[in-house]
Amino acid sequence: MLELLGTIGANIISLPGILGLALGMMTRRLWLGGLMGAVVGVLETVIFAHWNFGNVAMVELLIAVVIGLCAGTLGSVIRIKGTTV
């Protein structure tokens, strides 16, 4: 359980969370922000696995993609709400 929580927390404060949020803030389209965040999640997992898909755990990849998707969508929502205030 602690390993799962550590993986989730590490992805939030790592590339999928921070860069996904930043990329999401570059667009006003929710799907595009989410897609960019998810791509960052996949790339981050593959980079830290030394470009070898055999070293990638599916749970880590799934968590990174979901965190990136949520962060990118949140960045787009911040952009949309920031323009209307």
Rank of each mutant, 00 (worst) to 15 (best):
V56E: 01
A64D: 10
I80P: 08
G34T: 06
M26D: 04
F48H: 14
V59S: 09
T84V: 03
H50D: 14
L74V: 14
G75H: 10
I12R: 01
A71W: 10
G24W: 03
G72E: 02
F48K: 15
E3W: 09
T73V: 15
N11Y: 12
L32D: 02
L23Q: 11
C70M: 15
V65A: 00
K81N: 00
G6C: 04
F53Y: 11
T73Q: 03
T73D: 00
I13P: 01
L19W: 09
G17R: 01
V39C: 00
L23D: 04
I67P: 09
L4W: 10
A38Y: 09
E44M: 04
V77Y: 15
R28E: 03
T45L: 07
A10S: 15
T83V: 07
T27I: 05
I80N: 14
T73G: 09
V46M: 11
G41P: 07
T45N: 13
R79M: 09
G54W: 08
I78Y: 08
F48D: 13
I12S: 03
V59H: 15
G9W: 05
L69I: 02
L35A: 14
N52A: 08
F48S: 13
G82M: 05
M25E: 08
I63A: 08
M25W: 12
E3P: 00
T83K: 07
T84F: 04
V65Y: 03
G68H: 13
A57Y: 04
V56F: 02
E44L: 00
I80Q: 15
W51K: 02
M58L: 15
V46H: 09
I67L: 08
G33M: 07
G68K: 12
